[in-house]
Design a protein around this nucleic acid. Structure first.
Length: 210
DNA sequence: CTCCAGGGGGCCA
DNA sequence: TGGCCCCATGGA
């Protein structure tokens, strides 16, 4: 089954996921999306939401506040997201880079490949987090690969290979659309939860098989 | 009690 | 490169 048809199936069965709209209630959520991408590393999203709420309530959802804030205090705010010492360091390094780069506005003019290389050079930003930031916050047409994507490929009989191979597999077989990639990745995660549940695994397998 | 979330870094062979 | 361990909370 081709990837476009697979997308249609996932969408039909799981519905729109609506991950991370850049604009919500007239506000710019790009920085929050980036923070979320870092905080959600190996962490349940429900826990990330608590940490994000703490940052918002403390008026700390911006890079300058993150930089200024003592590490102990930042760690306390993001505590529910787990790995708080490492993630405190990651958020500070990332925020420093963002401010030093001139903020979100100045990133718009940079090519995606250059941005990706820069993100990957930062301590705490690996391939999935970099691509999530590029896709969901910076709205670049980059396909995000994660453990669920591998599982789906495996279940669908697709030999996707390593991260880069898997990414190229999807990017080369789909229209290079930021909105499509956004929804597709979110649908794969939703499928992964279905697959992870013993009671619905059969349903998940049916979705990816002819 | 165990398992694992919308990973990544460090180390070692 | 590939395998392991570490990081840490909270829900199932």
């Amino acid at each position: 089954m081709d990837l476009a048809a697979l997308y249609q199936r996932l969408y039909w069965h799981l519905g729109p996921q609506g991950w991370w709209p850049v604009q919500k209630r007239g506000r710019d959520h790009r920085f929050e999306i980036m923070v979320g991408a870092i905080l959600t590393q190996n962490t349940a999203w429900t826990n990330v939401e608590k940490a994000l709420a703490n940052l918002r309530l403390s008026a700390a959802m911006n890079p300058k506040q993150i930089i200024k804030m003592p590490s102990k205090r930042l760690a306390a705010l993001i505590r529910p997201a787990g790995y708080f010492n490492q993630k405190t360091k990651k958020l500070k390094i990332f925020s420093h880079w963002l401010v030093k780069s001139g903020g979100l506005r100045s990133l718009k003019s940079l090519p995606t490949s250059q941005l990706r290389t820069k993100l990957l050079s930062l301590w705490g930003i690996g391939p999935e987090t970099a691509d999530s930031i590029l896709l969901y916050a910076l709205e670049r047409p980059v396909f995000v690969v994660d453990a669920y994507t591998r599982r789906l490929c495996s279940a669908a009989g697709i030999d996707a290979g390593d991260y880069g191979s898997c990414q190229r597999y999807f990017e080369s077989r789909l229209p290079r659309s930021r909105k499509l990639f956004n929804e597709y990745h979110a649908l794969i995660v939703a499928w992964g939860k279905l697959y992870g549940n013993k009671k619905t695994r059969g349903e998940a397998l049916n979705l990816v098989r002819a």
